[in-house]
């Protein structure tokens, strides 16, 4: 396997940054996230970022078109920029999985979302494996993710302690490793053992069980403490719901889309006042059923990667692993 010593990574990143718009995990101001690489700047390649990388493809707000009006007249113009080739470096396997799920949403079922696709197509992915839980709230292994290795990327890096072992996962990845061959050595490597995860929710058969639990009193119970703040949905790497809104100044304006949250009552409230999910019981139920039943029914995968962000930051300790446990404990009549 090709290996690169960790002390050479910043020199490698300097080289990469000459070719790509390079995005790396950074400590940020209290919220670690993927941000443009600056030479000599801070890169935190240990652990996962607090903010997921979804905004690289699906920005928190994104202008779609601009318009101008003049009395009863008006015109509009699409704002779809082709971004430069970019590299997302240091994505953890849980977040690689989330990108796969976002691809399902934005690129399949009859319509391709160009705003997403234009960024996705131009992004080179480099993942870094974990040899165990990066955070105490991690449970990716239980959600079917191999914490040590991702395949749906261009290059994967195994964490071998003082060095990374690099494997190309695509043709572009092969070319990349050749181009930067001077940074790498060829070595026999032994992958470290994966250390034990504290959280191990069992999701075997959960979709089928939930199909019989829509009216179960569990939802009343688990939703009671939810504040409806939506933090879980903003931190979730797979939550993709969006709103479309606009700004107008004088006779000019633009329409944008922005992240929305199923935890908010306005999300489903119609103009006439009717709301099919009027209270937090329905909203919390919909969120968990979407992750564990509806998405698997529609796309074949759970919409949770076990990254643990929602449970680490929920102000009232809502814990999806605990809810999975409660679902398992329900005895159906």
């Amino acid at each position: 396997m090709k290996t690169v010593v960790k002390s050479k990574i910043s020199a490698l990143l300097d080289e990469i940054a000459k070719e790509f718009n390079l995005l790396v995990p950074t400590a940020g101001d209290g919220a670690s996230k993927f941000a443009p690489y600056t030479s000599g700047g801070q890169v935190s390649l240990d652990g996962r970022t607090l903010l997921p990388p979804k905004d690289v493809f699906f920005p928190q707000t994104e202008k779609m078109y601009k318009f101008s009006t003049d009395g009863m007249a008006g015109s509009l113009e699409t704002l779809l920029e082709a971004p430069k080739h970019q590299m997302l470096f240091g994505v953890r396997p849980c977040d690689v999985k989330s990108i796969h799920e976002l691809d399902h949403v934005f690129l399949t079922k009859g319509f391709v979302d160009e705003f997403y696709q234009s960024k996705r197509d131009r992004t080179f992915l480099v993942s870094i494996g974990c040899n165990g839980p990066a955070e105490p709230t991690c449970f990716c292994q239980s959600m079917g993710v191999n914490p040590q290795e991702s395949d749906a990327v261009d290059v994967h890096l195994f964490d071998l302690g003082s060095e990374y072992g690099a494997v190309a996962k695509s043709e572009n990845g092969e070319a990349f490793l050749q181009k930067y061959a001077s940074f790498f050595n060829e070595a026999e490597v032994q992958l470290p053992a994966i250390s034990e995860f504290a959280l191990k929710p069992d999701v075997e058969g959960i979709t089928e069980k939930l199909q019989q639990m829509f009216d179960h009193p569990l939802w009343e119970e688990v939703s009671r403490k939810c504040l409806g703040c939506g933090a879980c949905t903003y931190l979730c790497p797979t939550c993709h719901c969006f709103d479309i809104s606009g700004r107008v100044a004088g006779n000019q304006g633009f329409k944008f889309r922005c992240w929305d949250s199923c935890m908010f009552s306005e999300y489903t409230r119609m103009a006439g006042g009717h709301n099919p999910r009027p209270s937090k019981k329905e909203r919390v139920r919909n969120r968990f059923l979407h992750k564990l039943q509806y998405f698997p029914e529609r796309y074949g995968d759970l919409l949770c990667t076990g990254c643990g962000r929602c449970l680490s930051k929920c102000p009232v300790n809502m814990d999806i692993t605990n809810i999975i446990k409660q679902i398992r404990e329900v005895e159906l009549a």
Binding site: F111, F242, I244, T268
Partner: peptide, 14 residues
């Protein structure tokens, strides 16, 4: 909002 099954809000089940 979107009309193409992506923005999320108009789901009934899946």
């Amino acid at each position: 909002k979107c009309g193409v099954g992506k923005c999320g809000r108009c789901n009934i089940g899946s």
